[in-house]
Design a protein around this nucleic acid. Structure first.
Lengths: 235, 235
DNA sequence: TTCAAAATTGCACTAAGGTTAAATTTGATT
DNA sequence: AATCAAATTTAACCTTAGTGCAATTTTGAA
């Protein structure tokens, strides 16, 4: 590749969407949409992405010139329509991959996150198309999170944390809102999975354990774990 | 306890096996083992890896300090035991992935190379273990190349190019020695795949076409294509 | 013996994604 | 309203893996 024309080329506004860019956009999406907030801040992103705050500042500036975010210095970032589109594409890939790993290859729930986290950046659109078809176009990942459609639509789950649920009401699990492997192993080992039916029979006071009944089994779970399980009243 | 004493010397040798390193080792392996030669040379590697000759020289020096190759300047490179081990690991991943893409996801023969080329660097050992089990521990990739074992053994295919085969002898296809998508589409569309039975019924002189019979179908193929198909006498 | 081709080296450069240290801005608290 | 610590941004620099070009070295064939 000879690049003799390189000198007259104006600075490209449309730099590449690298793996890092995808990760940043996904993280901003997670803060600004999946968690209540409307904007993500530098400190949280630095923790989430495991880099220093200056790295965030620098990347935000770059993403701004790429028109993927709008960044108000010292205040916060939000995604542009284009940035959101890319973030949703990655989220879709991630969740389809997780589903595929569980259904087709028998992965346990706590193993899929890390694998999907790498693969989401490296598989082709064709690969995603094929696993989506193979899985019969699923709507959620194994943790119960919604899978965005190709054209960027996503239905947010509405449920309340099990830790807040009233006693003696039939509930079903909507979503497990954790990526922690230990939590997930615990949940899977007790069949605390999306779709499961249960009800709360006792709540110890002062943030103590909950007692629940699930499949005729009585089970004690900590408030901490219960806070990671979203439930809704069972119709 | 005498000779096992740990060397507490500062270690400059430990650098990471990056994606680039994996690609270089794989390319050196391909030249020095899969093609007749015992050593790979700079120029060929530069072409194979689509990189300038100085980039090769530079990387060879690095690989030498990592003890992954032995490089005799101006002559050639060969892999050390450790370098060969890494190269075989990547070849194994590549060929298992190709097989999986075809068997499990219905990829066509000409689509698998590029996909596997990326994925081989990014899937986990666990992923490879699972697809290997799922495929029931296959011995070859869809092109008929042998899949190295986990402990680094590989059985080389012995066959001759179909272009050199004598007429009227029952043959079967051992291997397709091309990654070119057009060639592969042609082969797949005519069922010229590993395992197929055929015999040569005519060879035009002066490097002209071959006429073969395969499944009661008569087929004309160019010497060029025939050179990419390894066959052996059918027992 | 010569000499051209191939390989290597040196140097300056690009590009992405980091780092630490210093400066700046914000906003909550006196 | 002024202050000051925490959060954030800027500045300067590092690393990996390339690039190109020029200069040098080595090899091997005529």
């Amino acid at each position: 590749m000879t690049s003799t024309a390189a000198k007259t080329v104006t600075r490209p506004v449309t730099r590449a969407v690298t793996r890092s860019v995808e990760d940043y956009l996904k993280a901003i999406f997670a803060f600004s949409e999946e968690r209540l907030a409307t904007e993500a801040n530098t400190g949280d992103l630095a923790v989430a992405l495991n880099v220093s705050p200056p790295a965030i500042s620098k990347m935000l500036k770059q993403l701004q010139t790429q028109r993927l975010v709008t960044h108000t210095p010292y205040h916060g970032v939000r995604l542009t329509a284009q940035g959101r589109r890319i973030a949703l594409r990655i989220v879709r890939r991630h969740r389809l991959l997780e589903r595929y790993l569980v259904e087709a290859l028998g992965y346990a729930l706590d193993e899929v996150h890390d694998e999907a986290e790498r693969l989401e950046h490296h598989v082709s659109d064709e690969f995603i198309r094929r696993i989506d078809a193979h899985l019969n176009h699923p709507h959620d990942c194994p943790h119960g999170s919604p899978i965005p459609t190709i054209d960027g639509h996503i239905n947010h789950v509405h449920g309340q944390p099990l830790s807040d649920a009233d006693a003696d009401i039939p509930l079903h699990i909507k979503q497990l809102t954790t990526d922690d492997a230990e939590h997930l192993r615990f949940m899977q080992s007790h069949a605390l999975l999306p779709g499961a039916l249960l009800r709360v029979v006792n709540r110890e006071p002062f943030g103590g354990d909950l007692t629940i009944i699930l499949d005729d089994t009585t089970l004690n779970i900590s408030r901490r774990i219960a806070g990671k399980i979203l439930v809704a009243e069972h119709a």
